[in-house]
Computed example of a mutant assay.
Amino acid sequence: MNALTLPVLLAGLLSLPTQAAISVRDDDGNTVTVQKPAQRILALAPHITELLFAAGGGEKIVGAVSYSDYPEAAKKIPHVGDNRQFDMERIIAMKPDLIVIWRHGSADRQIAMLRQLKVPIYHSDPKKLADIPEGVERLGQLMGTDNVARPAAAQLRTRLAGLTSQYGKRAPVRVFYQVWDKPLYTISGASIISDAMRVCGGQNIFAAMKVVAPVVTPEGVLAEDPEAIFGTSEKSDPDSEGGLAMWRAFPSITAVRRNNLFRLNGDLLNRAGPRMIDGTAAMCEQLDMARQRRSKP
């Protein structure tokens, strides 16, 4: 290499386009940075898998957890554990360049182990329905799939705005949302499900509870006398009333008296992914049914 060739070569290298690092804020408000678009992603909650697919990154998911079954392609993704325990050896072998987590009651120890891998970690925990399209956009940025994520997020925002405009100012309906019957779990105003009620013009009778998923008593529900009671159906028996059947023993409750015991698809409301907008639409329709029954004897 002669003296003239070296400066020319260096100038050529300097002129090559450089890949800028990508930074976004997660649902904890922490900055998450990847040096280049993520290509090997772990989705450590079912709703996260759905968010990543909606953002155009389904093919980039190398590992997921149990019950990550939507869309259909998600069923083929290898599992690395469930919400109780991750398989750390398998996670390490997958060499992820981005880990998307959901923090739940037993997650802190597992997340501490994940942080030891020195891989960027994005925490996904939407608190409001409006956070869902935000999450789609941010994950799209981290994966370099903005061309898919942005229009998908825009479509979700349009649908949500339409539901809010259509139902949000209608006569309020007092609602009890039953997560489980043994023990009797519900949700407080801090839950994203309570925000879905708000969009529909519903009022969560236990919104003031301090715990996100508190245990209540049948007597407490009776004292609040909800106009509508919601439960979720099981995939194995979608036509069964399940835990809602217990309320038939209390015919004095307004919800029972007016036949406002409603079942919803649990996957649509208990997962804070894009399909939750569909679950909210179903809730809105049923709350409108409760309004119409006010005039019936």
Rank of each mutant, 00 (worst) to 15 (best):
M1H: 05
A3K: 07
P7N: 01
P7R: 00
A11W: 07
A11D: 11
S15T: 10
A21R: 02
I22H: 00
S23K: 02
D28R: 05
G29Y: 06
T33N: 00
T33D: 01
V34Y: 01
Q35R: 09
R40V: 07
L42A: 07
L42I: 02
L42F: 05
L44H: 12
A45R: 09
L52D: 08
A54I: 04
G58P: 02
E59A: 13
K60H: 00
A64F: 00
A64H: 01
V65T: 12
A74G: 00
D82I: 05
N83A: 05
K95I: 08
H104G: 13
K118E: 10
V119N: 06
V119W: 05
P120W: 02
V136H: 09
R138A: 14
D146C: 00
A153D: 08
R157K: 13
T158Q: 15
T164C: 00
S165C: 04
Y167K: 06
Y177T: 06
V179R: 12
K182E: 14
S188I: 00
S191C: 04
G201F: 01
I205Y: 11
A208H: 11
K210I: 08
V221G: 08
V221R: 10
D225E: 04
D225Q: 07
P226T: 12
E227H: 01
E227A: 10
K235P: 14
A245H: 09
R248Q: 15
A249S: 14
S252A: 14
T254P: 12
V256S: 13
R263Y: 06
L264C: 11
L269Q: 10
P274G: 04
G279E: 06
D288C: 08
M289Q: 12
R293P: 15
R294V: 02
S295E: 15
P297S: 07
P297K: 00
